[in-house]
Amino acid sequence: MNLFLLSQLLACGAFMLDVLAFQFSRRVVSLTFLACSTSLLAFHFWLLDETSASGMMILAACRYLTATITTRSTLKWSFLGASVLCSLMTWQHPADALPLAGSLMMTLAAFQPDAGRLRILTLGGSLFWLSNNLLAGSPVAVVMEATFMMSTLISYRRLKQAKGMG
Rank of each mutant, 00 (worst) to 15 (best):
2 N>Q: 10
3 L>R: 10
5 L>S: 10
7 S>N: 08
10 L>C: 03
10 L>R: 05
11 A>F: 03
12 C>W: 15
14 A>C: 14
15 F>C: 09
16 M>E: 00
16 M>H: 00
16 M>N: 00
24 F>M: 10
27 R>Q: 14
29 V>E: 02
32 T>C: 11
36 C>N: 13
40 L>A: 04
44 H>R: 13
47 L>G: 02
48 L>A: 03
50 E>C: 13
51 T>R: 09
51 T>C: 04
51 T>I: 04
53 A>D: 14
55 G>H: 04
57 M>N: 11
58 I>H: 07
61 A>K: 05
63 R>V: 05
64 Y>I: 02
66 T>P: 13
67 A>R: 02
68 T>L: 06
70 T>I: 06
70 T>K: 03
71 T>A: 10
81 G>R: 00
82 A>S: 12
85 L>Q: 02
85 L>I: 12
86 C>M: 13
87 S>H: 11
89 M>K: 01
90 T>P: 00
93 H>C: 11
94 P>E: 08
95 A>L: 02
98 L>G: 03
100 L>F: 07
103 S>L: 12
106 M>D: 07
106 M>G: 01
107 T>K: 13
108 L>K: 03
108 L>T: 09
108 L>Q: 08
109 A>T: 15
110 A>D: 14
112 Q>L: 12
117 R>K: 05
119 R>N: 10
121 L>N: 09
123 L>D: 05
124 G>F: 02
124 G>C: 14
127 L>F: 08
129 W>A: 15
130 L>Q: 09
131 S>Y: 07
132 N>H: 09
132 N>C: 05
135 L>I: 10
136 A>P: 11
140 V>E: 12
141 A>N: 05
142 V>I: 07
142 V>W: 01
144 M>C: 09
144 M>Q: 06
144 M>N: 04
145 E>T: 13
146 A>L: 08
148 F>K: 09
149 M>T: 08
151 S>F: 00
152 T>V: 15
153 L>Q: 01
156 Y>Q: 06
158 R>M: 14
162 A>M: 07
162 A>S: 12
165 M>Y: 13
